[in-house]
């Protein structure tokens, strides 16, 4: 190596600055992914679980019978539970279904607490996971105020009945959750749950684009987010 100290320092500085600049540019100009759940549309098909099935099939989420060891990325819960503090006993929406999944918070507590950055915030807003790095301490599960995370208490493979070879399984001892289908939106496809919904009750889109259908919906319809008082700023919205 014929690198003088000066050249080395200069190169390091340049690398650092370009990295920071790229991040800044991406944060300003890149997409910010978000989702909206239309509870009324979802309610028209009370027994439908197509989004759950599609997600869990696409991502090799095991079907573990023991409820203590259950793993799910997306689940169906009534408003009465999802918005327990907001919906009083006379509320007309108590029984409406609210699909619950990772909120891909703007300010995610799980990312803050992870000691190895195995869960991290991408520039496009997705709270991603690096299953190669997770040490299985479950600090993120204690930190998530939404119960969005699941842990592999045992080897998940025996419970994956129809595996999708294009996506990895997980191994015992790591945490997992919804990834907003980072692998699909990278190739221009919508998330699996959105694609599977027969009622088009799930809307995925780019918050950074003022022309996006999602922004139009958010501007025109009243919506709520889960536990906004915690300052996590969820990126999953619910239409009543």
């Amino acid at each position: 190596m014929n690198l003088t100290r000066q050249a080395f320092l200069r190169l390091t500085g340049i690398a650092f600055l370009t990295g920071a600049a790229r991040k800044l540019v991406a944060a300003v100009t890149g997409p910010r992914w978000a989702m909206a759940v239309d509870a009324a549309k979802c309610a028209t098909q009370p027994n439908c679980t197509r989004c759950i099935a599609a997600c869990h099939q696409a991502h090799n989420v095991p079907a573990i019978p023991d409820p203590r060891h259950e793993i799910h990325w997306i689940a169906k819960e009534p408003f009465a539970r999802t918005f327990a503090a907001e919906e009083d006993q006379y509320s007309p929406v108590r029984a409406l279904p609210a699909m619950v999944l990772c909120n891909h918070c703007e300010n995610p507590p799980c990312v803050r607490v992870c000691p190895v950055q195995a869960t991290f915030k991408r520039e496009d807003g997705i709270v991603a996971m690096d299953w190669h790095r997770c040490i299985g301490c479950r600090y993120c599960m204690a930190a998530c105020p939404y119960g969005a995370r699941s842990f592999n208490w045992e080897d998940p493979r025996p419970y994956i009945h129809n595996p999708n070879p294009e996506f990895p399984t997980r191994t015992k001892g790591v945490v997992e959750k919804c990834t907003f289908c980072a692998e699909r939106i990278g190739t221009g496809r919508p998330p699996a749950c959105v694609e599977a919904c027969p009622q088009k009750a799930l809307v995925f889109g780019n918050l950074a684009d003022p022309q996006s259908p999602l922004r139009a919906l958010l501007a025109s319809r009243r919506h709520v987010r889960r536990k906004p008082e915690l300052g996590t700023q969820p990126n999953v919205f619910y239409f009543l």
């Binding site: 299953w131 493979r157 025996p158 595996p163 070879p165 990895p168 399984t169 191994t171």
Partner: peptide, 18 residues
């Protein structure tokens, strides 16, 4: 190598996943 704990080998895939 722990790769195969998660990544599937398309042939043995169904064999390894019961």
């Amino acid at each position: 190598v722990p790769c195969w704990d998660c990544h599937m080998d398309s042939k043995t895939l169904l064999g390894s996943v019961k």
